[in-house]
């Protein structure tokens, strides 16, 4: 079921305490700041958050962590020069960290959306991040068994959606959007522009609307009304 909603608050209203939430973005590119702010407002807590990082500066995911809403982070690169809110929670023992090599993170998210029960990958073999995991010698190299990462909700950002929920992204802001959209039970997308159905070239659609549940326009243009 696809819904077009007017405010980011309504778009995230269904997120429950204890949910696993995937948040798109790599650095600031593709990060759905307005949806994260709305998640903060809605008060959901005890969250498991899947993101490449663990918040930067004093905005978005960093604030969610600061306010103690996040029980666990699943990410590849939590430590940055401006990740002070995560650093403080981590050193205080108030947040759990599952550290995943970036490509394994992406593939585990992809696997969830693609119905794959797990996969063997050479990445991480022989390192502390593979400890306790099943290994096999396959295809000429040692490989480590990794499992899918599912989510209750994905919050992502795209450039445009049509009324079928088809999405196109912009440059490197695409990053985790397409795979998170597929991996979550409920996908909420913030876009800069909602365009009439038929105006996106089907050859250029990156995320087909089947993966999208809620679309909210943030800033940008309403080309339907302009037209």
């Amino acid at each position: 079921m696809l819904n077009f909603i007017d405010t980011v608050g309504e778009a995230v209203a269904g997120i429950q305490d204890g949910s696993t939430v995937m948040i798109g973005g790599f650095g600031n590119a593709g990060q759905p700041f307005e949806l994260i702010d709305a998640l903060m407002e809605c008060g959901a807590k005890d969250l498991t958050v899947v993101n490449n990082n663990a918040g930067q500066g004093d905005q978005g995911l960093a604030l969610l962590i600061k306010e103690g809403r996040v029980r666990k982070m699943i990410c590849s690169f939590p430590r940055q020069s401006d990740s002070w809110h995560f650093d403080a929670k981590f050193h205080a023992g108030e947040i759990e960290l599952e550290l995943v090599p970036q490509g394994n993170l992406a593939e585990r998210i992809r696997a969830a959306g693609a119905g794959i029960g797990g996969f063997f990958t050479p990445t991480g073999y022989g390192t502390t991040l593979a400890e306790g995991k099943e290994t096999r010698f396959l295809d000429g190299k040692w490989q480590v068994f990794e499992t899918p990462i599912h989510a209750d909700v994905a919050l992502i950002k795209a450039l445009k959606a049509d009324r079928k929920g088809n999405l196109v992204y912009r440059k490197t802001a695409r990053n985790f959007g397409p795979i998170m959209a597929a991996a979550a039970k409920h996908t909420v997308v913030q876009v800069s522009e909602i365009v009439p159905t038929g105006s996106l070239d089907p050859e250029n659609v990156v995320t087909p609307g089947i993966y999208v549940n809620t679309v909210v326009r943030v800033g940008g243009l309403d080309t339907e009304k302009v037209a």
Binding site: S76, F77, P78, R79, Q80, S83, F86, D87, F90, H91, L97, L99, V100, P101, Q102, G103, N104, P122, T123, G124, Y125, T127, L129
Partner: peptide
């Protein structure tokens, strides 16, 4: 006491 952060390092090294 260091916060571990791996990013794409293991994937690059392997691939």
């Amino acid at each position: 006491d260091a916060i571990p952060a791996v990013g794409g390092a293991m994937d690059l090294a392997t691939g």
